[in-house]
Simulated assay, not measured.
Amino acid sequence: MATNHSDPLAGIPATPFLAADIGGTHGRVALMRASRGGAEGVETLAYRVFACAQFPMLSDLLRAFINVEVHVPVKHCVLACAGQVMGNEVVNDNLPWPIHLTQLRQALGFDQVAVLNDFEALAYALDGSLADGGRHLCGPDTPSNGPTLVIGPGTGLGAAVHVPGPAGGFVLPTEAGQMDFAPNSLREREILECMAPNGGYVPFEYVVSGPGLLTIYATLCTLDGETPALATPEAVTAAAVACSDPRAVEALDVFCACLGTLAGNLAIAFMPTGGVYLAGGFLSSIFEWLKRSTFEERFLHGRSARALLSHMPVWVTEHGRHGVLGAARWYLRHGMAGAGPLQHAVADGAAA
Score class of each variant (00 low, 15 high):
175 E>L: 06
175 E>P: 12
176 A>Q: 02
176 A>M: 03
178 Q>C: 13
178 Q>H: 13
179 M>T: 14
180 D>Y: 12
181 F>N: 14
181 F>R: 05
184 N>F: 14
185 S>L: 06
185 S>F: 15
186 L>I: 15
187 R>A: 05
187 R>T: 12
187 R>H: 04
187 R>F: 01
188 E>K: 11
188 E>C: 12
189 R>C: 12
190 E>D: 12
191 I>K: 13
193 E>W: 07
195 M>H: 10
195 M>L: 14
196 A>V: 10
198 N>I: 04
198 N>L: 13
199 G>R: 08
201 Y>L: 08
202 V>I: 15
202 V>H: 02
203 P>Q: 13
203 P>C: 11
204 F>E: 11
204 F>C: 06
205 E>R: 06
206 Y>K: 15
206 Y>C: 15
207 V>L: 10
208 V>R: 02
210 G>A: 05
210 G>K: 09
211 P>Y: 09
213 L>Y: 07
213 L>R: 10
214 L>N: 00
215 T>D: 04
216 I>V: 15
216 I>F: 09
217 Y>A: 04
218 A>S: 15
219 T>P: 06
220 L>Q: 08
220 L>C: 00
221 C>V: 07
223 L>F: 01
225 G>E: 04
226 E>K: 14
227 T>R: 07
231 A>F: 11
233 P>W: 03
235 A>L: 01
235 A>V: 14
236 V>A: 00
236 V>G: 05
237 T>Q: 13
237 T>D: 03
237 T>C: 02
239 A>W: 09
239 A>S: 06
241 V>C: 09
241 V>R: 13
241 V>I: 12
242 A>V: 08
242 A>I: 04
243 C>I: 06
244 S>K: 02
244 S>R: 04
247 R>V: 06
248 A>S: 12
